[in-house]
């Protein structure tokens, strides 16, 4: 809970500072600062995500689930977080086209990760059919 207040305070202060920097002669530094704060907030919140993930892994091992599927899901979540981060930064700086391409790349990578699972589902369906 304390992390939330820290993050909100940091975000408020930074928003005002970025507004201020954008008025100066180097508006590029405003983008740099916003990227920096985004990375800081992400780094702050990552330990919590890792806690949740460890609990999910424990549950999966108790249910004797195949760890391959769970690992794939976590990889997909990680890819989406990072891609969202990058795309949001690009869009904030006014480069919507680059942001769209980043999201496209992330979607392709997620698809590549998901293909083995789809293949496994199809295989089991084929096995069910006579």
């Amino acid at each position: 809970m304390e992390v939330l207040f820290v993050i909100i305070g940091l975000a408020l202060v930074t928003t005002v500072l970025v507004l201020f920097v954008n008025e100066s002669k180097v508006p590029g530094l405003g983008v740099v600062i916003s990227v920096f704060v985004g990375a800081l907030i992400f780094i702050q919140i990552l330990p919590k995500i890792s806690y949740v993930i460890s609990i999910f892994e424990e549950l999966a091992s108790r249910a004797s689930l195949n760890t391959f599927y769970l690992a794939t899901i976590f990889k997909i979540i990680g890819i989406s977080y990072i891609a969202e981060f990058g795309a949001q930064v690009c869009r904030d700086a006014g480069q919507g086209a680059i942001a769209t391409k980043v999201e496209f790349a992330a979607k392709v990578l997620v698809m590549v990760l998901a293909v083995p699972i789809i293949a496994a589902i199809l295989e089991s369906v084929v096995r069910l059919l006579p």
Binding site: F42, F74, G78, I79, I82
Partner: peptide, 11 residues
């Protein structure tokens, strides 16, 4: 940040 995400999500 990238390294931490890599280690957390096993990428």
């Amino acid at each position: 940040l990238f390294h931490q995400v890599k280690t957390v999500f096993n990428l």
